[in-house]
Amino acid sequence: MPKWAMVIDLDKCTGCDACAVACKMENNVPIADPAEAQSGRAMFWMDMMTTTEGAFPNTVTKRVPKPCFHCDDPPCTLVCPVGATYRNPEGLVAQIYHRCIGCRYCMAACPFTAKVYNWYDPKWIDGAEVGNPDVSRRMVGVVEKCSFCSHRLMSVKETAHREDRPIMDGEYVPACAESCPAEAIVFGDIENEESRVYRLSRSYRVMRYGEDLGVKPKVYYLSRRTET
């Protein structure tokens, strides 16, 4: 069973936000109107953490793209009262929008603020299938988050199955990785020792958020900077 993981090379990443938009477009993530966005309800599955540190002129600005980390021991799924978020055998932490009761307990429990909530019914044009038809639309009152573009996995699996072969490294690529102009995002099966993700995850530059929490995030960051 493969285990999907992501490596984000912060030394390559410029913080251009292309991944954030690629993700929103790919996954039909709604746009928040001005007042909503300004009151902290903008929805980004791939968020960008920006911090400026160090006193002028030794200023360091860190820009860290942050999807859901798809923790191997996810604290978010543990608390869901109805099993609307769960970790599947391939390590993807998924949401079942139609089961979610909107208690937002998983949001409170996620140490990485990776989930977003539909405070209102998202606005889309009635019936128009524009937007990605492979990804279902969410409704008011449910939690959503980065899915590692699991819909893409399905189609990759189908193809591989049809051709009677295993999924190749680099065949299943999420939208953010695909459109990153710096090629900073690498995605693949971390159990496969031949994969790029596996190799990169062994780098001396590797760092994971919340390592001390024991939640085993499957998003690895590479950075020359020691503390991130």
Partner: peptide
Amino acid sequence: PILDLGRPDRMMNLLEAGRLQSPLLWDV
């Protein structure tokens, strides 16, 4: 907690799909 639910219409999911591992269910 019901006031707080985004989807009170799906409250019955707590019975149908309730997960005893969730502290919220301990509460219930």
